[in-house]
């Protein structure tokens, strides 16, 4: 996916991204404080917000004027937005049914993705019967089962209990490395950014202030607000190497 000169207006707030590229199998982390425009960027890519100007290219084709259902992007919001009146099975099958897939194929794909995410025993439950961690897995299962061209994750760890976050982060990281899909991952946490991302796009006040790898980011002034987290990041990097 290539994003060029993307401009989105929401009231007085303007988001402008001159250029972004995410390759298949790559995870680009959009890092920034609350209100920086991370969710606006993700929703614009998904087609949920009208783009004022610019292009969103997928395999060379501009999809910026296509409605969300025709883009092939899967979006997982911070709230997970599981359909509360449907069981986990039906939540995961929703996108497959929308594509008119036959019942046997849906059954096969739902079982398969549930196995990958370790939620096979939750398929008969309703969302309100799940923990935050389980809801996160279901939301990701529902998103990846449709084999999207781009997976958009908005603060997927924010609702996880701090004591469980490290485990959830590790699980998500190992899952994302297995997926052959372009991932855009929005977060305000440097720890999450370092854990998940191949590259960091730092957004502040609606502007793309930095684009590069983790080490480069840590040497910039933008990393200063994250000083508290840097020690944890350093520890993480030591364990990774």
């Amino acid at each position: 996916m290539i994003v060029e000169n993307l401009r989105v207006r929401r009231g007085s707030f303007v988001l402008y991204v001159p250029r972004l590229e995410v390759g298949r199998g790559e995870c680009l982390v959009v890092l920034g404080p609350s209100g920086a425009g991370k969710t606006t960027l993700l929703k614009s890519l998904a087609g949920l917000l009208r783009v004022e100007s610019g292009r969103i290219l997928i395999d060379g084709m501009d999809v910026s004027r296509l409605p969300p259902e025709q883009r092939g992007f899967a979006y997982v919001p911070q709230s997970y937005a599981l359909f509360p009146h449907m069981k986990v099975w039906d939540n995961i099958a929703y996108g497959l049914r929308a594509r008119g897939m036959d019942r046997a194929r849906i059954e096969e794909k739902v079982r398969s993705v549930a196995k990958v995410l370790g939620i096979e025993d939750l398929l008969d439950r309703y969302p309100h019967q799940l923990s935050a961690g389980q809801r996160q897995r279901v939301a990701i299962a529902r998103a990846i089962v449709v084999e999207p061209r781009v997976l958009l994750l908005d603060e997927p760890l924010a609702n996880i209990d701090p004591s469980m976050r490290s485990r959830a982060r590790n699980f998500l990281r190992s899952l994302l490395t297995k997926l052959d899909v372009a991932v855009v991952y929005a977060t305000h946490s440097l720890v999450d950014a370092v854990s998940m991302g191949d590259r960091i796009a730092y957004v502040v006040d609606g502007k793309l202030a930095f684009l590069g790898n983790v080490e480069q980011f840590l040497s910039t002034d933008y990393a200063k607000p994250y000083l508290e987290e840097i020690e944890i990041v350093a520890k993480y990097l030591r364990t990774r190497t």
Partner: peptide
Amino acid sequence: DPELEEVARCLGA
């Protein structure tokens, strides 16, 4: 929650 509808659209509905 409008996000329920937004997610459903992104899933192809």
